[in-house]
Amino acid sequence: MRCYICFNEIIPTITWVNVFKPPEQQRCCADCLAQFEPVTPTCPKCGRGDSDGICFDCERWGMGQEDPLKKNVASFSYNAFAKDWVAKWKYRGDYELLFSLQGKLDVPVGYAMVPIPLSEERLKERGFNQSEAIIHMLGKQPVSLLGRQGTTKQSKKQRQERVDSENPFQLLDPINQPVLLVDDIYTTGTTLRHAASLLKEGGCPEVYSYTLFR
């Protein structure tokens, strides 16, 4: 057994259980796992960990309009270690690195899991869609309801540009049950809110979202 992140060997401690049964498959060593910081949400809306009640970013969203996104849940904070991890997984395209987090995530259950689509161009370059990959890793089937035209990366834009940007998605199939949007990082929440507003217009009662990092 090797850690998927640092490639060091993982030696399981011997207990009565694995004397009789083969040990459970581990994909992340304790040292690497300790470097991910779980977030304890203080903003009930977006799940960030450094605010007092509803955070300023959520409050100023849309200024008075109804927020299409009901709630976001995130597992870990987007610290330096997580940044390196995402860079290797998403930008370098190390698909299997994602599985280092398998079984370590606390994801809301009972919703249709909808991935955020990727543009043709980006999909060709990367070879996989990162939110579909997360859903597959969780052992669920993605429900693809959205399409996408735009091509610019969100991570290349400033906050204001992101909030003002036009909705890059289109709705392919309407749905009438609660939905959980899945993505890798929540930064300003623009991507998720764009997707959520379309789903709402199509008749979806409630839209939640889950991201690995916040």
Partner: peptide, 27 residues
């Protein structure tokens, strides 16, 4: 073998092998 990964590759619609050892220089 532990430095090879597998991923569902969108371009060929099947699971393809890739090298995880030199991925810092591109896959």
């Amino acid at each position: 073998s532990h430095l090879f990964g597998h991923m569902p590759h969108d371009a060929c619609q099947k699971t393809c092998r890739y090298c995880r050892n030199c991925i810092q220089m591109g896959r």
